[in-house]
Design a protein around this nucleic acid. Structure first.
Lengths: 102, 102
DNA sequence: TGTACATATGATATATTTTTCATATGATAA
DNA sequence: TTATCATATGAAAAATATATCATATGTACA
């Protein structure tokens, strides 16, 4: 394991450690969504959504396009979802093991 | 993407979002290490090490064996390193792209 | 131009994490 | 046994992250 990137890796995990941001990324998997739409979709107020999106954008996980008055967000780096997937699989596995004592 | 596990996934990412804990997991990849040894290895005081290890243990990423007076920690779920690896690869890729504008 | 809509941003409040300090617990060996 | 070493733990302090509120910015359209 290349230990030099552990600091960067921890940054990535920090970004992914927030359920709201995860939901955003997953929802953006195959389409762009405007800030307002994300806000109502996730049931989180606009300002909070903007703040979180700015974090994702700062770290180049998403990028934006303006369409009229709206800003549409889209994944900038779909590979990030592979990491999310690994974690989801890990979770579902752990939960299965707990339930059935495999 | 199975959206039901996003909460659990965010928990995992929360654990992995701390560089100290990442270093611990990576160092434990192929051997057990005592608390004291981890403390001097990572240059972090014993109490802080114990606190972090207890988090890892609570989430079943590590487990312990007592040897004499020492407690040795070992990975309980090596699969977690696959997730770390994905993130490390992501980081090194992003950094390469930044440097060379691939 | 001015009004409304969509989003961003800064400051502050709130919540969560991490470290530190003091001390407890548990095992070994004299 | 008791002195010492190794680790754990609880409480408080320090550091970070997140949400909220007020308001600024930018665009479209009457």
């Amino acid at each position: 394991m290349n230990i030099n990137y552990l600091n960067e890796a921890s940054q990535i995990f920090k970004i992914l450690s927030n359920e709201t941001r995860l939901k955003m990324l997953v929802n953006l998997e195959n389409k762009s969504i405007s800030v307002n739409d994300l806000s109502s979709l996730l049931n989180i107020e606009q300002s909070a959504v903007s703040h979180q999106l700015s974090i994702l954008k700062k770290h180049q996980l998403v990028d934006t396009d303006r369409v009229g008055k709206s800003i549409y967000y889209r994944l900038d780096d779909p590979h990030i979802l592979d990491i999310v997937n690994e974690a989801v699989q890990h979770s579902s596995h752990v939960i299965r093991v707990k339930k059935h004592g495999e």
